[in-house]
């Protein structure tokens, strides 16, 4: 007997995104409530270090308004189409960014377009078997963060702050927000820092000192990995992997 189920409107991307994300070992969104704290650089160096340790690693730039991971890497590669979207492969990483589709056009996008694009990317990208997917997130607690919370419950959020009070207080609020939402937190990294603030409610994974050399290493992954910034990120990574 037939029955019209009154589907309303079923968006097929949700189920696909959940399944694809469930195939990834660990999802590490790098977040901060403030901009300019070093999320993109930390995401990129962290992904490069994970890859050099032999982990199968993906790097996803989800900063739809201001993607910059390709500038840090010095290349962007080209995704391919094969039963879905295959990320670019470079520097031992699988890499995807809005830049692959927007080119150099100004990214004047409203939040509806961003949420929908995020869902589109998560539902069609074939990352394959990955140990880690590092996600460079835009600043703030907007749609991208909420969508990830909804679609990837197992994501472990890695928070970034600076020692500045305005930043710390805002990040502390974000910690409370993530905890209230039941999100998992990998820990917190304090950037531009020499002695850490006594953070509460979140595990401090380490500090990263200000490194004036890092600017000159932008666009060269090999040089970036020889900076003191990368050595500090390596210590953060070791602390994280200790669990």
């Amino acid at each position: 007997m037939g029955e019209l189920a009154g589907a309303g409107k079923i968006d097929p991307r949700e189920a696909a995104a959940r399944r694809r994300l469930s195939e990834i070992g660990t999802i590490l969104p790098v977040v901060s409530s403030k901009g300019g704290v070093g999320k993109s650089l930390l995401s990129t160096v962290l992904a490069l270090l994970l890859s050099r340790r032999g982990y199968r690693t993906g790097l996803l730039d989800l900063d739809f308004h201001s993607p910059s991971v390709h500038l840090i890497l010095g290349e962007r590669g080209k995704p391919r189409e094969d039963r879905g979207l295959l990320p670019a492969e470079l520097q031992g990483l699988k890499f995807l960014s809005v830049i692959h589709f927007s080119g150099e056009r100004p990214l004047l996008l409203r939040k509806e377009g961003i949420s929908s694009s995020l869902l589109e990317l998560l539902s069609t990208t074939r990352w394959g078997a990955l140990d880690y997917l590092v996600i460079d997130m835009p600043p703030g607690s907007g749609d991208e963060l909420l969508e990830l919370l909804r679609l990837a419950r197992k994501a472990e959020f890695l928070l970034v702050s600076t020692p500045a009070r305005l930043c710390r207080e805002s990040v502390e609020r974000m910690v409370r927000g993530l905890r209230g939402a039941g999100a998992r937190m990998a820990g917190l990294v304090e950037n531009f820092s020499s002695s850490p603030y006594p953070w509460e409610g979140v595990r401090l994974l380490g500090t990263i000192r200000h490194d004036p050399e890092v600017e000159g290493a932008m666009g060269r992954a090999d040089r970036l990995l020889r900076t003191s910034f990368a050595r500090d990120v390596e210590r953060v990574l070791e602390e994280y992997l200790r669990g």
Partner: peptide
Amino acid sequence: MHEWAIAEGVVEALLERGRKEGAR
């Protein structure tokens, strides 16, 4: 062939809805 990835999503979403509705 991006259509394949779209079809995967459609099939998963429909099967999920079918299960929820107890459909044979």
